[in-house]
Amino acid sequence: MQIAKTHRVSGGELAYASHQSAATGTEMRLSVFAPPGAGPFPYLIWLSGLTCTEDNFTSKAGAYAAAARLGVAIVAPDTSPRGEAVADDPAYDLGQGAGFYIDATQKPWASHFQMESYITRDLIAAVEAAFPLAPRRSMFGHSMGGHGALTLAMKHPQLFKSASAFSPIASPTRCPWGEKAFGAYLGSERESWRAHDAALLIEAGKAASFDDILIDQGTADQFLVDQLKPELLEEAARKAHQKLTLRRQEGYDHSYFFIATFVSEHVAFHAARLA
């Protein structure tokens, strides 16, 4: 782990760092906030959305005061592998900055876009070796990262105690963002897409280990109807008899202003389940 810089914040320490990932075959960047004290601390992994880096949540969410008060650390990785040798696309919703937290199987993406393996294997091993973190973790995220947080938590329940999301892509198999990305990364066989769809995973009972899933969705979100479709999560939860709390927040959009307003409640939600 290479530490690029550190900052004192909310009585704790924020580190910007990087490390080599075997899964992606690249250097991966991240930020890690450790609250005051000696640790080891339970921690949250935050997954950001399209076009974001490890810095968006770190500089905009305002989560660290709540994390310091509740004694939890927060890890925020980059959203994809990067570099001149890494495949890319001119569009904002595919390629670098748009890893979708899945393991690609198709060329040219499969060589580096192994984000599920990176998050659930390489990232966890690296941060727990380098920082005062306990092996007690939860996940949350936004938009593309909300999709990632929900699906990875459900697919790897032995790794994560809880999951929550802001404005998640609820069902990537049924929206333009997901169809484009899954078609490129996974190929045209749509049956293989189902394992990466939060609504379908809930419907299949894959969230049974979680006592609740917290979702916040702004009613003024410009992507609400065509891309996010949170009602599909509610429908899936009803079919599976799964507790899911979907809070529709009046007038809020898709931005980090929305996240900053409610992030402390998400940190508290997870802290209670990591205690």
Rank of each mutant, 00 (worst) to 15 (best):
K229I: 11
P135L: 08
S192Q: 14
E191M: 05
Y252T: 00
D55L: 13
A199F: 04
A271Q: 13
R121D: 13
Y64V: 00
M1P: 13
F258I: 00
P108V: 10
A126Y: 01
D212Q: 08
S80A: 13
A260K: 15
G39P: 08
Y43R: 09
R137Y: 07
I124M: 04
D211E: 14
E54P: 00
D221C: 11
E203F: 03
K155P: 00
A15G: 05
S48H: 07
C175G: 11
M115V: 04
Y252V: 00
V86G: 05
S209G: 08
A240T: 02
R137F: 09
A61M: 10
H112A: 09
P176R: 03
R82S: 03
L232M: 12
L133G: 02
T53F: 01
A126P: 00
F160R: 10
S59A: 09
A204Q: 11
E116T: 07
D93I: 01
K161V: 07
V86W: 04
A23P: 01
S164W: 14
L152D: 07
P42N: 11
G145A: 06
P90R: 01
S171P: 01
L159H: 13
H142Y: 04
L152C: 10
K60H: 14
E84S: 10
D88E: 05
S143T: 08
G178Q: 06
F160E: 06
E235M: 06
I45T: 14
A236S: 10
S48V: 06
Q158A: 15
Y43D: 08
K229Y: 07
A98I: 03
A91C: 00
S138Y: 01
E250H: 12
T79Y: 00
G95W: 02
F41P: 02
Q96E: 04
A237F: 03
C52D: 15
R248K: 15
K161T: 08
G205M: 06
V225F: 12
F131Q: 02
D122E: 05
A149K: 09
Y185N: 10
S264P: 01
W177S: 09
W193C: 04
D122Y: 02
L186K: 06
A184E: 15
A38V: 06
L70H: 03
L133Q: 02
A181E: 09
H241D: 14
I45A: 07
E27P: 00
S10G: 08
A68L: 02
I124H: 01
D122M: 04
S192F: 07
R8D: 14
Y185K: 06
R238L: 12
A87L: 05
L244H: 10
P36V: 10
A271P: 08
T105F: 07
A67W: 03
W109V: 02
Y185V: 10
T79C: 13
L246D: 10
E84M: 06
Q227A: 12
P135S: 13
Y43N: 07
G205I: 01
Y16A: 14
L214R: 08
P81T: 04
T173H: 05
F262N: 14
T26K: 12
W46M: 11
G95T: 00
T219A: 11
K180H: 14
R247Y: 03
D226R: 15
L94T: 03
K243G: 02
D211M: 08
S18L: 03
G37P: 03
A237V: 04
A236D: 09
D103M: 07
Q96L: 02
V75I: 11
D253Y: 07
A260C: 06
R29Y: 12
S209C: 13
A126G: 01
S31D: 07
G148F: 08
T105A: 14
T6V: 08
